[in-house]
Design a protein around this nucleic acid. Structure first.
Lengths: 124, 124
DNA sequence: TTCTTAATCAACCAGTTAGTTGATCAAGAG
DNA sequence: CTCTTGATCAACTAACTGGTTGATTAAGAA
């Protein structure tokens, strides 16, 4: 009953449900950074930032390496893709309500012109 | 300093960070449903499901209408798109680290001009 | 009117999260 | 060795989350 992928989705979405962690993601998208570097633009303590990074790490959104005393944090875009993959399952399905579908239309070319979808897929 | 759109992102990601609410989203992607219908596959009480729907509603992921005593819940895909829009800002940026891009490549067909420059500013 | 159904409101409880401060560990530098 | 830097660990608090049960509102049906 427990989909093992569920917990990872839980952690990932929860990790992004915090503006500080989203800012950390944004910063890491420009390259790896240490805890001190990440903590600098925030008013919160370094320990608090370290906890945020732990949350991101448990969600597998970032990884940490070693460099002498420093522990540089790297963004792992693969997990971000898992989130968009989940969302993309649903953001299109009710055709009466969508808006800008540009990117998705090509990946749904097989399903064009219909509004019924008998997908027996039951994720999360 | 605080982006007002931030709070909506907070709520939306937090709303999705729960398997029950993701199942509700999945169910609603197949059409509107009442609270009782949504509560049926769960073991939790109807009140708990009602709370979940409130969370989704505050995140503007769903809307509620009125039909006699029933209050059918509808999925609002627009907000899901806002989430993918946020993620898409970052999921590709570090070219040296990506992994499986299969699904993404087609949606980036128009973006073919961008490629990597090897870590120009990063001491390793 | 009374009865049933659909759903929310209110109060409460257990577990978790985000933040703090202070101590500790690990790796160089002197 | 000692000292400094980078980062984590430990303990604690305040606030929030997810769930419960019981009462209440709202709309029809009898």
């Amino acid at each position: 009953m427990d989909d093992p992928g569920d917990e990872l989705l839980d952690r990932a979405f929860l990790a992004l449900a915090d503006p500080a962690r989203r800012r950390i993601i944004a910063r890491l998208s420009r390259g790896p950074a240490t805890v001190n570097e990440l903590a600098e633009p925030f008013e919160i303590s370094k320990q608090a930032v370290s906890k945020h990074i732990q949350v991101l790490e448990q969600a597998q959104l970032v990884t940490r390496t070693r460099d002498a005393q420093r522990r540089p944090v790297h963004l792992d875009p693969a997990r971000l893709e898992a989130l968009t993959a989940w969302i993309d399952q649903y953001r299109l399905v009710r055709e009466g309500q969508f808006r800008s579908l540009d990117a998705v239309l090509k990946s749904l070319a097989a399903d064009s012109g219909k509004q019924s979808h008998e997908s027996a897929k039951d994720p999360s």
